[in-house]
Simulated scan of single mutants.
Amino acid sequence: MLKKIKINKKLLKQLDFITILTVIILGIFGSINIYSATHLNCGNYYLKSQLIGIAAGMVIIYLVLIPDYAIVKRYANIIYSFGVFLLILNCLPMFKSTVNGASSWIKIGPVSMQPSEFAKVGIIIMLAKELDDMEGNINNLKNFMKLTAYAALPMILIVTQPDMGMMMVCFFIVLGIYIVAGLDFKIIGGGLAILTGLICIVWNSPIMQTYWKTRLLSFLDPDADPLGAGFQLSQSKLAIGSGGILGKGFLKGSLTTGGFIPEAHTDFIFSVIGEEWGLIGALFALMLYAIIIYRLIKIAKNSKDIFGTIVSVGLIATMLFSILQNIGMTIGIMPITGITLPFLSYGRSSMLTAFMSIGIVLNIGMRRKKISF
């Protein structure tokens, strides 16, 4: 029984420990900043919760590494269907929970979760399975339509919440997979044109309520409503700018500790880093992300099959876009959405899926070649 829950020593030699170490450092750095943003009002609660989440995340990575990732392909339909099921469950009033205007959470008893976090992983795994079965022939019309249908179903359910931030993440996941899979750029261009039209339709439909539009567009001119929709961004830019090169010091950020930045421990954790650690702290976080992304790309390139490559690409696209979007919105160059910063922001669902995603890619890298027993 014990053998079934252990990783073979020969496989462990292929494991990318640098990525694991970098993730741990990033998680600890995030925990420190979460504590700074919350300690005055909540004491050690969020710090302890985040550290427990990191410990649980390491257990998840270990458990994900045990089976051959080919098993994931075998259960791709179940994983994908479960993600869609959770999104449908999210439509039922008795489970729906609204946070910041988006009904993107489900609550069952004391447990809350964000179904779209798991659904996006299901999209990646399903597209990877289908592309592997198609031997990468994405430019066949039938194959392309099949892939697009699988991607579109959960994305439509996410839009109806509405959770435009997660919709953007899913879109760039699919786009990244299509590009790497070799989809004709004429089709990509046509798809983008159709998508633009659909966005215009959704934007002017009852789905997009006025306050949500205002929140998304506030980054264009935050001073137009400095005490309303533009308040969060204005305070974020002020905090990051006031940090200078070296920052004000740990627990010394007046805007952070004063509670002037809403959601500072989740969506706007980068503002805390900018104020208290300055440019040096921001570059340190970006350096850690660069190491992780670089090493995951190497795994994607060296995968032994199409399934492994596409899964890796999808998960890399998820992380890369989340980093660009989150940091971009805190400095005012991207619209404000509810996208968290991987491993730095507080959030159970996002933390769980981030560690799970890293574990899956490391599994692919660990089994990139046959091991002789």
Rank of each mutant, 00 (worst) to 15 (best):
I5M: 13
K9H: 08
L12S: 12
Q14C: 10
D16P: 12
I20N: 04
I24N: 07
I25N: 02
G27I: 03
S31E: 05
Y35L: 15
S36F: 08
N41C: 06
L47K: 02
K48A: 10
K48P: 08
I54C: 10
G57V: 10
Y62S: 06
L63I: 15
L65F: 11
Y69V: 05
A70P: 03
A70S: 14
A70E: 14
S81Y: 12
F82M: 08
L87W: 02
L89N: 05
N90S: 14
K96D: 06
S104N: 15
W105R: 08
I106W: 00
I106A: 01
K107I: 09
V111I: 15
P115L: 07
A119G: 11
L127K: 04
E130M: 15
E135G: 02
N139M: 10
N140A: 12
N140H: 15
K142Y: 14
K146I: 01
Q161W: 04
M164V: 10
M166Y: 03
C170A: 11
F172R: 04
F172M: 10
I173W: 01
I177L: 10
A181F: 06
L195D: 09
I199V: 13
I207E: 02
Q209M: 10
R215T: 03
P222F: 04
A224L: 13
L227V: 08
G228C: 11
L233Q: 01
L238I: 14
A239T: 06
G247E: 03
G249I: 06
G249Q: 09
L251G: 03
A264I: 02
H265W: 06
G281L: 07
G281T: 05
Y289W: 14
Y294N: 11
A300Y: 01
A300H: 01
S303F: 05
T309G: 04
S312T: 06
L320M: 14
L324P: 01
L324A: 09
M329G: 01
G332T: 09
I333Y: 05
M334G: 07
M334W: 07
G338I: 04
G338Y: 00
L344I: 11
M356H: 05
M356N: 07
I360M: 11
N363T: 05
G365N: 02
G365Y: 00
S372N: 14
